[in-house]
Amino acid sequence: MIGLIGKKLGQTRVYDPSGRAVPVTVVLAGPNYVVQKKTTATDGYEAVQLGFGEQKEGRLTKPVLGHLTAAKVPALRRLREFRDFTLDVKPGDKVGVEIFAEGDYVDAIGVTKGRGFEGVVKRHGFRGGDMTHGAKGWHRRSGAIGQRLFPGTVMRGMRMPGHMGQVRRTTQNLLVVKVLPEDQLLLVRGAIPGAAGEFVIIRESKKRPKVAAKK
């Protein structure tokens, strides 16, 4: 399972070789630094910890800074482990978008845009009431939430208004349209979660891994 930490820059569109316009999200995904390597012997599992993003040293705590200095990497903003990283790397190494190729499939993980407290129409797609035909004051409500004396309680998990967005979400099976190693950019087909400027994780697709895609 290979992956990178990146920054979502925004969306645009490009033409593919057949002349079709493809919507893409541009992700700055490098350089990532290898900060630590975890092994079954020392940690009980295999993983590689990557770091990404410039940060002022003063903004990091001393324990974190010490951890980074041990790996001889600059001050980094985000750290994240990737389990069973299939590339052979050692602490201090740089990895970048080169680990992906055009035609690969990836999953994008990000924190969705926060919507605040939202009603059921927006949050759960309820239909609400009529806007006309004599409807008055009953337009975006959810309707009844229970039954009668039995069960006499509202079922658990009943969909109701509440806070929406700002949760971690994964979009799976996105096509890598283009890799630009000079600028460390990845063009990924379609939308990925979160606002522009947010950190995202781009990893090899779980359902369509690299090996299978090449066959």
């Binding site: 820059l9 925004g10 569109r13 490009v14 541009v26 630009l180 522009a196």
Partner: peptide, 14 residues
């Protein structure tokens, strides 16, 4: 800036 990067991606297509 971010906007310039986005434009540089599509520049060659204009």
């Amino acid at each position: 800036g971010i906007q310039q990067i986005l434009e540089s991606v599509t520049e060659s297509q204009v």
